[in-house]
Design a protein around this nucleic acid. Structure first.
Lengths: 153, 153
DNA sequence: TAGTAGTTGACAATATTTCTCGATTACGAT
DNA sequence: ATCGTAATCGAGAAATATTGTCAACTACTA
């Protein structure tokens, strides 16, 4: 399999972003391009609130309701996925590759983590009729940055 | 290892529930007993709203704010844990044993799933300094009940 | 270039969670 | 058994997060 174009390489490539949106059956409006782009250029799994603040830097006066609706349509189209994490607000991710998450309990940063070995997990025999389509793994712990800042805690 | 007392066996054993609460350093108030009990007798990972409705059957006029505060204190005491799942409201679980979750995308039921083999997952070498303390696994798919009601979808 | 379905903007409404503070209560110490 | 006290509860306001409504607008198709 060829290396898929990753998120970062898309950061300034608006025509490519527009193409993806149209390919998914959605209209390529400037609001959608800007919002989708914010999700593509970050790996921080931002909330709607954070996405909104960042898009405002480029698109003044974009109402937050539009961010909600846009994320919803991107999610239905399969371009974006909700990430279930502790906390009040939902978080979103434009990384469609199969990947897992490292969750730091101290700084709450969530890092993407790709490991094909984990993808092979198939506890099928024990699932008593459950037909699994996907496995999501969260590794909870302390990230390297937090360990350095206070190694013993 | 002896079989731990599971949640179901506690369902009507209020003295034992009170003992656990005191052991965790909390006062054993009637409200707390009722709320903690609701979480112990179900495996449905209910929301605060659902817990509130169920407790109301036994304790009329209990305000929902008290449910929020009680769940928070139980969580801080380590008796209850938040379960991160898709959806708007947080969900809670009194099952402290190490376990994972089967998430049905059709009926949204979440079933506990214990598999010691999965507990051995240690992707340490690839984690570049991340110190893992816990692995949470969600198996996403279609549960057996939903498969029967519409096998091909 | 016009028609149309899909989308946006403005804002109301609802849902979820946290906070404040005076009243009450569980529990250890008398 | 009663008291003192810190923890907890009850009531309700407030803050935060999300969804809904609908008229105006616009990207895309023909």
């Amino acid at each position: 399999m060829a290396t898929p174009m990753n998120s970062k390489s898309l950061s300034a490539d608006m025509p490519e972003i527009a193409r993806r949106i149209r390919e998914a059956g959605l209209k390529a409006t400037p609001q959608r391009l800007a919002i989708y782009r914010e999700l593509l250029v970050t790996d921080e799994h931002p909330t709607i609130e954070t996405i909104h603040q960042r898009v405002l830097a480029h698109q003044p006066a974009l109402p937050i309701g539009t961010v909600y609706k846009t994320i919803e349509s991107l999610e239905l189209a399969g371009l974006v996925s909700e990430v279930s994490l502790p906390g009040n607000a939902k978080r979103y991710d434009a990384n469609i590759e199969r990947h897992h998450h490292l969750v730091c309990t101290r700084c709450h940063r969530v890092t993407d983590f790709i490991d094909p070995a984990l993808d092979d997990i198939r506890p099928a025999a024990r699932l008593r009729g459950f037909r699994a389509t996907e496995v999501k793994i969260q590794i909870i712990g302390i990230c390297s940055i937090c360990q350095k800042s206070d190694p013993k805690a």
